[in-house]
Design a protein around this nucleic acid. Structure first.
Lengths: 187, 187
DNA sequence: CCGAGATATATCGAACCGGGATATAGCCAC
DNA sequence: GTGGCTATATCCCGGTTCGATATATCTCGG
């Protein structure tokens, strides 16, 4: 093993490949639209280099399919060494979740922002959460045979439910904190 | 305005400076230990270049304090243009939260992992969540005069509470999904 | 039926970011 | 008094993002 610690994207690629071979394009789609989208995110610029490194380290193999005209399809498969590396990587303590929230930055800055901006952010967030939860509920049926996906979806629904609930109950308080639109004489 | 879209780190710096002048060191501490740590994260390697860009664009000013021996203290203050840029940046729809969760990757991969690994991850996560919530409860009193911080802390506590609750109720199910330690004959 | 746009697929490059190493000088603990 | 921590900034390497580019098929609106 040339590197003892796998980068997050490399770990993600191995985890996806553990469920079956895939192309870089499919891995990206999985991490943007698929079951993984709620807790990872990766772009071409990180996935393809990561796959190249993994191939170089012997953790994945590549098989090329040439379709006339189209770019070469590079299909990646995990190797036994790759499986070992994945298990080793996932065996390390996971550490806290990392959350990046533009919305919470707006909330924190509410005292310095016009009330309309705060209100728009709250509404947008409520909309997004509602949409997301609907989507999760819709796909629950499709994946009921994969229990780990069901577990994760349940987790996501629980967290988003609480989030939405807090938002609906406390939206007015937050907007009230914002800078009142009329009295801007006093900074 | 030379750039119409601020980078996330630049936005963060402006948001912090909006509450008062600070050095790069203090901004970093705020984003790692302070009120912002739950939803952003930034390092020296991103903060200092961002501050330089902001200064270059006229969004912040720098004042230098030379203490004998120590490195020069560069104290940054936001300008009116900076405030405008901050408000403009925060006025754009915030988009969904981004969550990076090593733990959920473990959960998703549970069928391919030894039960002990899954159990360790669950325990570690429970520990982290409990610690984090205790810390939040402790600081609630200190910041009761800043209502936006109180709002965010309430939000965080609600989400973490649900998270912990789901974890405690469903931990066994997840561990049960993991690969049983004895029967590893059939892959 | 023709062109606009989407889909599938990979690559490249510039800018940006993360984490560690480096420098320095008081202060605290042992 | 030595080693480690705090305060403070800078530099660098590798990893990451995001957009541009290439190209062939397929689909949809006009």
């Amino acid at each position: 093993m040339s590197t003892d610690t796998l980068s997050p994207v490399s770990t993600l690629c191995l985890a996806i490949l553990q469920c079956g071979e895939a192309t870089g394009y499919e891995i990206k789609k999985e991490s943007v639209e698929g079951d993984y989208r709620y807790f990872v995110d990766a772009s071409y610029g990180s996935i393809y280099p990561a796959l190249a490194r993994l191939a170089n380290d012997g953790y994945v193999t590549v098989r090329e399919e040439t379709h006339p005209g189209r770019p070469i399809r590079k299909i990646y498969s995990i190797t036994p060494e790759g499986t070992d590396a994945l298990i080793a990587a996932l065996s390390q303590p996971p550490g806290p979740d990392q959350r990046r929230s533009r919305f919470l930055l707006v909330a924190k800055s509410a005292p310095h922002l016009p009330a309309a901006v705060v209100k728009a952010a709250v509404d947008e967030r409520r909309r997004l959460l509602t949409e997301e939860m609907e989507h999760l509920r819709r796909i629950t049926a499709d994946y009921s045979d994969e229990p780990s996906v069901a577990w994760i979806v349940g987790y996501g629904l629980a967290c988003m439910g609480t989030s939405l609930d807090y938002l609906e109950k406390n939206a007015d308080d937050l907007v009230a904190i914002a800078k009142p639109p009329l009295a801007d004489a006093a900074e």
